[in-house]
Amino acid sequence: MSGVPIQSPVPAGRSTRKPKGEGHARRAEILDAAERIFVEVGYDGATIRRIADEVGLSSTALYMHFPEKSAILHEICEGAFGRLQAANATVLAEGGPAEVKLRRLMEGYIAFGFANPNAYRLIYLTRPVEAREGADSASQRLGGELYRAFEALIEEVGAAGGLRGEVRATAQALWAGAHGIVSLMITKPYFDWVDREVLTRTMMDALFAGLLKP
Protein backbone atom coordinates (compact mmCIF):
# COMPACT_ATOMS: atom_id res chain seq x y z
CA MET A 1 0.00 0.00 0.00
CA SER A 2 1.35 3.45 -0.88
CA GLY A 3 -0.44 5.29 1.90
CA VAL A 4 -2.13 7.62 -0.60
CA PRO A 5 -5.85 7.97 0.24
CA ILE A 6 -8.14 6.33 -2.29
CA GLN A 7 -10.72 8.75 -3.66
CA SER A 8 -14.29 7.63 -4.17
CA PRO A 9 -15.30 7.50 -7.82
CA VAL A 10 -17.55 10.23 -9.13
CA PRO A 11 -21.04 8.85 -9.88
CA ALA A 12 -21.67 8.33 -13.60
CA GLY A 13 -23.36 11.23 -15.34
CA ARG A 14 -22.43 13.83 -12.69
CA SER A 15 -19.79 16.54 -12.69
CA THR A 16 -17.35 17.18 -9.87
CA ARG A 17 -17.80 20.50 -8.10
CA LYS A 18 -16.04 23.25 -9.99
CA PRO A 19 -14.67 26.65 -9.03
CA LYS A 20 -16.97 29.63 -9.05
CA GLY A 21 -17.02 32.11 -11.88
CA GLU A 22 -17.43 29.83 -14.90
CA GLY A 23 -20.42 31.86 -16.08
CA HIS A 24 -21.74 30.80 -19.47
CA ALA A 25 -20.13 27.35 -19.34
CA ARG A 26 -21.75 26.61 -16.00
CA ARG A 27 -25.13 27.91 -17.22
CA ALA A 28 -24.92 25.69 -20.31
CA GLU A 29 -24.05 22.72 -18.11
CA ILE A 30 -27.15 23.34 -15.99
CA LEU A 31 -29.34 23.54 -19.10
CA ASP A 32 -27.92 20.29 -20.49
CA ALA A 33 -28.45 18.46 -17.21
CA ALA A 34 -31.96 19.84 -16.74
CA GLU A 35 -32.93 18.88 -20.29
CA ARG A 36 -31.96 15.26 -19.62
CA ILE A 37 -33.71 15.20 -16.25
CA PHE A 38 -36.92 16.80 -17.53
CA VAL A 39 -37.16 14.07 -20.18
CA GLU A 40 -36.17 11.28 -17.79
CA VAL A 41 -38.52 12.02 -14.89
CA GLY A 42 -40.83 14.71 -16.25
CA TYR A 43 -41.03 18.36 -15.27
CA ASP A 44 -42.89 17.67 -12.02
CA GLY A 45 -40.43 14.95 -11.03
CA ALA A 46 -37.39 17.15 -11.64
CA THR A 47 -36.26 19.21 -8.66
CA ILE A 48 -33.77 22.02 -8.34
CA ARG A 49 -31.77 19.85 -5.94
CA ARG A 50 -31.57 17.01 -8.45
CA ILE A 51 -30.46 19.33 -11.25
CA ALA A 52 -27.91 20.98 -8.94
CA ASP A 53 -26.53 17.59 -7.86
CA GLU A 54 -26.16 16.57 -11.48
CA VAL A 55 -23.76 19.46 -12.17
CA GLY A 56 -22.02 19.45 -8.80
CA LEU A 57 -23.64 22.59 -7.40
CA SER A 58 -25.57 23.39 -4.26
CA SER A 59 -29.20 24.39 -4.75
CA THR A 60 -28.29 27.88 -3.54
CA ALA A 61 -25.57 28.19 -6.17
CA LEU A 62 -27.93 27.06 -8.92
CA TYR A 63 -30.41 29.77 -7.93
CA MET A 64 -27.68 32.30 -8.76
CA HIS A 65 -28.08 31.24 -12.40
CA PHE A 66 -31.83 30.61 -12.56
CA PRO A 67 -34.48 32.02 -10.18
CA GLU A 68 -36.77 28.99 -10.53
CA LYS A 69 -37.23 25.69 -12.32
CA SER A 70 -39.61 27.13 -14.93
CA ALA A 71 -36.93 29.63 -15.99
CA ILE A 72 -34.63 26.72 -16.86
CA LEU A 73 -37.32 25.08 -18.95
CA HIS A 74 -38.17 28.34 -20.74
CA GLU A 75 -34.52 28.86 -21.68
CA ILE A 76 -34.21 25.30 -22.99
CA CYS A 77 -37.29 25.77 -25.17
CA GLU A 78 -36.21 29.20 -26.40
CA GLY A 79 -32.74 27.92 -27.25
CA ALA A 80 -34.12 24.99 -29.22
CA PHE A 81 -36.56 27.17 -31.15
CA GLY A 82 -33.78 29.67 -31.80
CA ARG A 83 -31.47 27.02 -33.29
CA LEU A 84 -34.24 25.68 -35.49
CA GLN A 85 -35.15 29.21 -36.59
CA ALA A 86 -31.53 29.91 -37.57
CA ALA A 87 -31.40 26.71 -39.65
CA ASN A 88 -34.67 27.62 -41.35
CA ALA A 89 -33.44 31.14 -42.13
CA THR A 90 -30.46 29.66 -43.97
CA VAL A 91 -32.77 27.55 -46.15
CA LEU A 92 -35.19 30.41 -46.81
CA ALA A 93 -32.32 32.66 -47.90
CA GLU A 94 -31.32 30.21 -50.62
CA GLY A 95 -32.43 30.62 -54.18
CA GLY A 96 -34.51 28.15 -56.15
CA PRO A 97 -38.17 27.15 -56.44
CA ALA A 98 -40.38 27.38 -53.36
CA GLU A 99 -41.16 23.65 -53.42
CA VAL A 100 -37.45 22.84 -53.30
CA LYS A 101 -36.95 25.13 -50.30
CA LEU A 102 -40.03 23.60 -48.68
CA ARG A 103 -38.54 20.13 -48.86
CA ARG A 104 -35.20 21.35 -47.53
CA LEU A 105 -37.01 23.09 -44.68
CA MET A 106 -38.80 19.88 -43.74
CA GLU A 107 -35.63 17.82 -44.03
CA GLY A 108 -33.90 20.35 -41.75
CA TYR A 109 -36.73 20.08 -39.22
CA ILE A 110 -36.44 16.29 -39.17
CA ALA A 111 -32.65 16.45 -38.88
CA PHE A 112 -32.98 18.89 -35.97
CA GLY A 113 -35.30 16.50 -34.14
CA PHE A 114 -32.90 13.60 -34.48
CA ALA A 115 -29.90 15.73 -33.51
CA ASN A 116 -31.68 17.19 -30.45
CA PRO A 117 -34.04 14.43 -29.23
CA ASN A 118 -34.37 15.67 -25.66
CA ALA A 119 -35.06 19.27 -26.65
CA TYR A 120 -37.49 18.03 -29.31
CA ARG A 121 -39.40 16.02 -26.71
CA LEU A 122 -39.68 19.06 -24.48
CA ILE A 123 -40.87 21.53 -27.11
CA TYR A 124 -43.07 19.22 -29.20
CA LEU A 125 -43.95 16.14 -27.17
CA THR A 126 -43.92 16.45 -23.40
CA ARG A 127 -43.98 20.16 -22.66
CA PRO A 128 -45.78 20.87 -19.39
CA VAL A 129 -48.13 23.75 -18.66
CA GLU A 130 -45.27 25.92 -17.40
CA ALA A 131 -43.69 25.92 -20.88
CA ARG A 132 -46.90 27.12 -22.50
CA GLU A 133 -47.72 29.99 -20.17
CA GLY A 134 -48.22 33.37 -21.81
CA ALA A 135 -48.89 33.89 -25.47
CA ASP A 136 -46.19 36.57 -25.48
CA SER A 137 -43.43 34.33 -24.11
CA ALA A 138 -40.30 34.04 -26.23
CA SER A 139 -40.81 30.32 -26.84
CA GLN A 140 -44.38 30.92 -28.01
CA ARG A 141 -43.22 33.76 -30.24
CA LEU A 142 -40.39 31.77 -31.81
CA GLY A 143 -42.56 28.71 -32.33
CA GLY A 144 -45.22 30.85 -33.97
CA GLU A 145 -42.68 32.54 -36.21
CA LEU A 146 -41.33 29.17 -37.31
CA TYR A 147 -44.75 27.92 -38.32
CA ARG A 148 -45.75 31.15 -40.04
CA ALA A 149 -42.59 31.07 -42.16
CA PHE A 150 -43.34 27.44 -43.04
CA GLU A 151 -46.93 28.25 -43.99
CA ALA A 152 -45.84 31.31 -45.99
CA LEU A 153 -43.59 29.10 -48.10
CA ILE A 154 -46.52 26.78 -48.78
CA GLU A 155 -48.59 29.83 -49.76
CA GLU A 156 -45.85 30.67 -52.24
CA VAL A 157 -46.10 27.17 -53.71
CA GLY A 158 -49.88 27.58 -53.89
CA ALA A 159 -49.64 30.96 -55.61
CA ALA A 160 -47.65 29.29 -58.37
CA GLY A 161 -50.38 26.66 -58.76
CA GLY A 162 -48.40 23.91 -57.08
CA LEU A 163 -50.88 22.70 -54.44
CA ARG A 164 -53.59 20.08 -54.76
CA GLY A 165 -55.49 21.40 -51.72
CA GLU A 166 -55.70 24.55 -49.62
CA VAL A 167 -52.76 26.06 -47.80
CA ARG A 168 -53.67 25.45 -44.15
CA ALA A 169 -54.57 21.79 -44.61
CA THR A 170 -51.42 21.20 -46.66
CA ALA A 171 -49.22 22.90 -44.07
CA GLN A 172 -50.68 20.91 -41.21
CA ALA A 173 -50.48 17.61 -43.09
CA LEU A 174 -46.82 18.21 -43.98
CA TRP A 175 -45.93 19.20 -40.43
CA ALA A 176 -47.80 16.20 -39.03
CA GLY A 177 -45.84 13.91 -41.32
CA ALA A 178 -42.46 15.35 -40.37
CA HIS A 179 -43.34 15.39 -36.68
CA GLY A 180 -44.62 11.83 -36.85
CA ILE A 181 -41.42 10.35 -38.19
CA VAL A 182 -39.27 12.15 -35.62
CA SER A 183 -41.51 11.48 -32.63
CA LEU A 184 -41.98 7.81 -33.44
CA MET A 185 -38.30 7.10 -34.01
CA ILE A 186 -37.06 8.91 -30.90
CA THR A 187 -39.71 7.49 -28.59
CA LYS A 188 -39.77 3.96 -30.03
CA PRO A 189 -36.07 3.23 -30.68
CA TYR A 190 -36.62 -0.49 -30.05
CA PHE A 191 -38.85 -0.85 -33.14
CA ASP A 192 -37.27 -2.47 -36.17
CA TRP A 193 -37.03 0.73 -38.20
CA VAL A 194 -35.53 0.78 -41.67
CA ASP A 195 -32.63 3.15 -42.27
CA ARG A 196 -33.60 6.65 -41.07
CA GLU A 197 -32.66 8.38 -44.32
CA VAL A 198 -34.55 5.80 -46.38
CA LEU A 199 -37.66 6.18 -44.23
CA THR A 200 -37.47 9.98 -44.30
CA ARG A 201 -37.07 10.06 -48.07
CA THR A 202 -39.93 7.59 -48.59
CA MET A 203 -42.25 9.58 -46.34
CA MET A 204 -41.31 12.90 -47.95
CA ASP A 205 -41.77 11.52 -51.47
CA ALA A 206 -45.25 10.29 -50.55
CA LEU A 207 -46.29 13.56 -48.92
CA PHE A 208 -45.08 15.72 -51.79
CA ALA A 209 -46.62 13.42 -54.43
CA GLY A 210 -49.96 13.52 -52.65
CA LEU A 211 -50.13 17.17 -51.65
CA LEU A 212 -48.20 19.01 -54.35
CA LYS A 213 -48.75 19.03 -58.08
CA PRO A 214 -45.92 17.76 -60.30
Rank of each mutant, 00 (worst) to 15 (best):
149 A>C: 03
200 T>D: 07
159 A>W: 01
125 L>V: 14
210 G>V: 07
164 R>I: 01
33 A>P: 11
80 A>H: 03
193 W>I: 04
7 Q>W: 08
124 Y>E: 11
131 A>V: 06
60 T>W: 04
60 T>F: 05
91 V>L: 04
32 D>L: 13
163 L>A: 06
93 A>P: 01
34 A>D: 07
189 P>M: 08
128 P>Q: 05
187 T>L: 11
176 A>Y: 04
170 T>A: 13
128 P>H: 09
205 D>W: 02
195 D>L: 04
188 K>Y: 09
50 R>M: 11
44 D>I: 08
67 P>Q: 08
145 E>V: 06
174 L>V: 10
91 V>R: 02
150 F>T: 06
22 E>Y: 06
8 S>V: 15
124 Y>T: 06
58 S>Y: 14
210 G>H: 03
44 D>M: 12
168 R>S: 10
28 A>R: 14
115 A>H: 01
63 Y>E: 07
50 R>D: 02
88 N>L: 09
202 T>E: 12
46 A>G: 11
26 R>F: 01
25 A>P: 04
59 S>N: 01
170 T>H: 07
202 T>K: 01
24 H>P: 10
156 E>Q: 13
115 A>Y: 03
122 L>K: 03
59 S>L: 00
6 I>P: 03
81 F>K: 02
36 R>P: 04
180 G>H: 10
19 P>L: 14
212 L>M: 11
53 D>F: 04
8 S>R: 15
188 K>D: 09
169 A>S: 12
29 E>C: 13
64 M>N: 11
171 A>R: 03
104 R>L: 08
92 L>D: 10
212 L>K: 03
1 M>Y: 12
19 P>W: 12
190 Y>P: 00
106 M>I: 14
32 D>A: 15
205 D>H: 00
51 I>S: 02
126 T>M: 11
52 A>E: 00
5 P>I: 08
203 M>E: 15
49 R>L: 13
68 E>V: 09
183 S>G: 14
144 G>H: 10
